[in-house]
């Protein structure tokens, strides 16, 4: 592995980690779950009991759920 490739790999890991901790991968996880659970492709067509939410709908739904179910932050 060249130095450049190593740096690139490291940067990708840092980005992956940061995105994970901030929760940016939530939509991707939701889509994967939906596909697995409902036997649909990623576009959401198929036998889904709940139609797949679009990215915009998903994030709205996420903050709306937080509105109804608040979580404390520690001191």
């Amino acid at each position: 592995m060249t130095l450049l490739a190593g740096v690139r790999k490291g940067a990708r890991s840092v980005a992956w980690y940061l995105k994970g901790v901030l929760g940016e991968d939530a939509y991707a996880k939701y889509v994967a779950h939906h596909a697995a659970a409902c036997g649909t492709d990623a576009a959401g067509v198929g036998r889904a009991p709940h139609p797949l939410m679009t990215e915009r709908e998903f994030w709205r739904d996420q903050t709306d759920r937080q509105d109804k179910n608040p979580q404390g932050r520690c001191c």
């Binding site: 994970g20 939530a26 996880k29 994967a32 779950h33 739904d61």
Partner: peptide, 21 residues
């Protein structure tokens, strides 16, 4: 699992998540 509130998360990411909380 519902892909939202209940979603398996990589242990290292969850560690950061839990620590931040």
């Amino acid at each position: 699992a519902d892909g939202k509130d209940f979603a398996a998360t990589d242990r290292r990411v969850l560690f950061g998540h839990h620590f931040a909380a």
